[in-house]
Every structure is written in structure tokens, then in C-alpha cells.
Amino acid sequence: MIKSVLIFNTQGKPRLTKFYQQIDVDLQQQIVKEIHSLVVKRPAAACNFLEGSKLLGGADTRIIYRNYATLYFVFVVDSSESELGILDLIQT
């Protein structure tokens, strides 16, 4: 199940945030900051999959992202989703 879709630039300014679960606005902002810090510091040659943190829902949650120019397209999903399927969705 897709938990959220995030698009933000390299400075961390959100361009689109969509959460599919009821989450407080302050917690949403913390999640965007945490995901930005995790994704931006990874090298370009690293894989596009990350395990979630406690803030996101624990080890059952995965972060799948793709970088295009100055934007990061990020999907937060649970373990039942296919990582390659989500990457294909981002590509499309």
C-alpha cells in the first residue's frame, strides 16, 4: 500500500505532498525533513530503496525515490509493494 507521495527539490522545499493516512501537519513536516535528509546525502550510484524509520512506521515501511534534475520523487510504501513496480510508476 502506498502511504505517501512526496516531491521536493534539492533544498528540501516540498512541491507536492500527499499522505494517504491521517497524520498531523507537524508530523508531516517532520517526515518530509527526515526523508529529505536521508535521500539527499546518498550518492548517485547508490540504490533507490531505503528502509523506513520509526517516524515513518518502522521496518515494514520502505522509501523508494528517484532524482530527476533538481527534484526528488519519493514514494513511501509498506512491504507488500514491489520496489521495481514503484520505480516504474515514478518513471512513467
Rank of each mutant, 00 (worst) to 15 (best):
V39S: 05
V39I: 08
V39A: 08
V39W: 09
V39Y: 03
V40C: 08
V40P: 04
V40I: 15
K41E: 12
K41G: 02
K41Q: 12
K41T: 12
R42E: 11
R42I: 09
R42Q: 11
R42L: 10
P43M: 13
A44V: 08
A44E: 13
A44C: 11
A45K: 10
A45P: 07
A45D: 14
C47Q: 07
C47Y: 02
C47I: 09
N48R: 09
N48A: 10
F49H: 12
F49T: 03
F49R: 09
L50D: 07
L50H: 02
L50E: 03
L50N: 06
L50K: 06
E51H: 04
E51W: 02
E51V: 07
E51R: 02
E51I: 05
G52N: 05
G52H: 05
G52W: 04
S53I: 00
S53F: 04
K54I: 00
L55C: 00
L55F: 00
L56N: 10
L56Y: 04
L56W: 05
L56P: 04
G57A: 11
G57C: 01
G57Y: 01
G57D: 08
G58W: 02
G58N: 10
G58A: 01
A59E: 09
A59D: 03
D60N: 14
D60K: 15
D60W: 00
T61Y: 08
R62F: 14
R62W: 13
I63L: 11
I64G: 05
Y65I: 14
Y65L: 06
R66S: 13
R66Y: 09
R66N: 14
R66D: 13
R66C: 04
N67W: 00
N67M: 14
Y68Q: 09
Y68H: 12
A69I: 02
A69P: 05
A69F: 14
A69M: 12
A69R: 13
T70A: 14
T70F: 13
T70S: 15
T70M: 12
T70Y: 15
L71C: 01
L71E: 10
Y72M: 06
Y72A: 10
Y72E: 00
Y72K: 08
F73T: 15
F73M: 07
F73V: 03
V74N: 11
V74M: 09
F75K: 13
V76P: 02
V76Q: 14
V77D: 14
V77C: 12
D78C: 03
D78E: 13
D78R: 06
D78N: 13
S79P: 09
S79T: 08
S79D: 15
S79F: 03
S79K: 11
S79C: 04
E81T: 07
E81R: 05
E81H: 04
E81S: 09
E81V: 03
E81P: 07
S82K: 05
S82N: 07
E83M: 05
E83Y: 10
L84F: 11
L84K: 04
L84H: 02
L84S: 10
G85H: 08
G85L: 11
G85V: 06
